[in-house]
């Protein structure tokens, strides 16, 4: 049973200014199944809607963001919980669904000790006295490579990498089924990034969680994910296993993304994508990539390519044959 299923999900930012309504279609008609025990990567340029998708998954939707259409549900222990069912979701928040935000500086309350932050997040879920809880948290943090002193520190006394470890500890202490990560390694240096990635992978192996990882960093995806969903301008354009994405990308956008990465021997010619991603309040008609796509043909400009299945993978492009071969 899939952990999360999204069907034709549309979530828009609806702003009203002097009576004129501006709609930004950040997530537009997205269908996606998230399987148990997998690490699913969501990749794409800035502003493609990947963070919005994660906000929806973590049920932290605030106006002006609104789910306009579509069906979305979690499946935990054989029960289905629809998105927006706040009462039921609150029960699962943090115990079943945890969220690791960007590795930025401001995720932990600056005037609260780490110990109290832990208590705030765990108090509804554990029923043991504070002393015992503190002991267990210390043990757990030590497993993640943090000293016992951390518990009595304020966030500003910790380095960026330590803070991210604390956040990972906070998110995984209850062994949640689903962990949502939003760019967990941005703002950290490469060595720390590597440690954090290894830590996440180790935890996933031990606890068997499902992880959804949003990042624009394809190297990170190659390192850790099992499957990748590529987003462009609010739409999913390709979903396939990580190996398939890197070995044989089907969608032109995926191919261009991969070609923009240097190889280890440095012999490949780097190509990029010209132009800017479209403004999501006024996306182009037809395939949203067509103004930038080097392989564009007439119907791309007017017709929208549907997401088609080719064996165990899907992609949305007219220029892929029914047999799953690129025709460009």
């Amino acid at each position: 049973m899939n952990v999360v299923s999204l069907e034709g999900l549309k979530a828009h930012y609806i702003n009203e200014l002097y009576g004129a309504i501006k709609t930004t279609r950040a997530v537009d008609n997205v269908s996606l199944d998230i399987r148990p025990n997998e690490i699913l990567g969501i990749a794409g340029e800035s502003g493609c809607g990947k963070t919005t998708l994660l906000k929806i998954l973590s049920s932290t939707i605030k106006p002006p963001l609104k789910i306009v259409q579509g069906k979305a549900a979690f499946h935990f222990d054989g029960k289905e919980i629809e998105f927006g069912d706040e009462a039921k979701l609150d029960e699962h928040r943090w115990r079943t669904i945890a969220y690791i935000p960007q590795g930025s500086m401001h995720v932990l309350n600056p005037v609260r000790k780490i110990r109290h932050t832990f208590h705030d997040f765990l108090e509804h879920h554990v029923d043991i006295d504070r002393k015992e809880l503190d002991r267990r948290i210390t043990d757990y943090l030590q497993q993640l490579g943090l000293s016992a002193k951390v518990l009595n520190s304020y966030p500003h006394e910790l380095s960026g990498g330590m803070k991210q470890r604390v956040i990972i500890g906070l998110a995984t202490y209850l062994r949640p089924k689903l962990i949502l990560c939003d760019e967990p390694t941005t703002a950290l240096d490469v060595m720390v990034q590597r440690n954090i990635v290894q830590l996440l992978r180790r935890i996933q192996k031990e606890q068997g969680n499902t992880i959804v990882l949003v990042s624009h960093d394809l190297a990170l995806h190659a390192n850790i994910t099992d499957r990748i969903a590529i987003m462009y301008a609010g739409k999913l354009v390709e979903i396939a296993s990580t190996k398939q994405i890197f070995d044989r990308p089907l969608h032109p956008y995926t191919r261009l993304l991969i070609n923009s990465l240097p190889s280890l021997d440095g012999t490949n010619e780097l190509t990029g994508l010209s132009g800017q991603p479209p403004v999501l309040s006024d996306p182009p008609p037809g395939c949203r990539l067509h103004p930038r796509c080097p392989y564009v043909e007439t119907r791309c400009r007017t017709e929208e390519p549907p997401l088609r299945t080719f064996g165990d993978r899907t992609a949305a492009c007219f220029r892929i044959s029914d047999g799953g071969e690129c025709e460009y």
């Binding site: 932290t60 928040r93 969220y99 705030d120």
Partner: peptide
Amino acid sequence: EDYVTFAQAGGVS
């Protein structure tokens, strides 16, 4: 601020 959003996602009362 991020820490408020984070606490909300974490189901802090």
